[in-house]
Computed example of a mutant assay.
Amino acid sequence: MACGKSLRLTIVAKLTGLERAREQSNGTPQARFALHGMFLFLVGLLTGLVETNLNNPRMGLAAHLEGVMNGTFLVALGAIWSEVILGPPQKTVAYWTVLYGTYANWAVTTLAAIWGTAAMSPITATGHSAQPWQEAVVTVGFVSVGLSILTATILVLWGLRNAALREPSSENV
């Protein structure tokens, strides 16, 4: 099953062009964040083109903004990633939780717009509701996004604190 999943991910990456772009970026985390950021920014823009056709257009607008803002966040994070000083395990957790959180934020918000759920979004969902299982999926999704982004933010902040506290070299003074 793992082999099949890996094959599907490889096929999706090749079809979307992400694999070739990753190879051309020399695989640096900064370049990967920039790539993911611009891709998510594009996804957010495309979401904006269809937001009025979704079951809950206000949540569709939120999904559009989540894609654009999270894409911008990833580009900005890529620009400072070399300043984040963490051990390899912590930096890996920060990297993957921020990617999960940004993409899942857009995806869950888009699902909420498509299904018209009111889960965890009373302002944008006024007058909308969906099947209980759809409300549950969106609730779990938003909770996982919140935990992921909080974890990533705390780790990145800690890594930047480590960078700010290190002794400056004579060339940086």
Rank of each mutant, 00 (worst) to 15 (best):
E167W: 00
I154Q: 09
R32P: 00
W133C: 01
A76V: 14
P29I: 00
F73Y: 06
R58T: 15
P132L: 01
T92Q: 05
V50A: 02
L49P: 01
T151Q: 06
A34G: 04
L111G: 10
R161C: 03
G37W: 02
L42Y: 06
G48Y: 11
R22S: 08
V12H: 02
A164G: 03
L65T: 08
V93A: 04
K14F: 07
S25L: 03
V98Q: 10
A164M: 11
M69S: 05
S169R: 14
I154R: 11
S6Q: 03
T110Y: 15
A62P: 02
H128R: 10
I80A: 04
G159P: 12
V138I: 08
T126N: 04
T28I: 08
G27R: 04
C3Y: 01
V143P: 06
W133E: 02
M69I: 14
H64I: 11
L49T: 15
G159F: 07
P29R: 04
A31H: 07
V43E: 01
E66D: 10
N55D: 03
A136E: 15
R22Y: 11
R22K: 10
N55Y: 12
V145P: 05
Y103M: 09
A125V: 13
G67F: 09
L9R: 14
P132S: 07
S6F: 01
V68Y: 13
N26P: 00
G27K: 04
T124C: 03
N70Y: 06
N162L: 04
L150W: 12
G87I: 08
C3Q: 09
L54Q: 04
G44P: 08
N105Q: 15
E66W: 14
Q134A: 15
M120F: 11
G146L: 10
N55Q: 09
C3L: 03
L35I: 07
A107F: 15
A136R: 14
G87A: 12
L111D: 08
G78D: 07
L49D: 07
S6W: 00
Q134W: 09
V143E: 06
R32T: 07
R161A: 12
Q24D: 10
G37K: 06
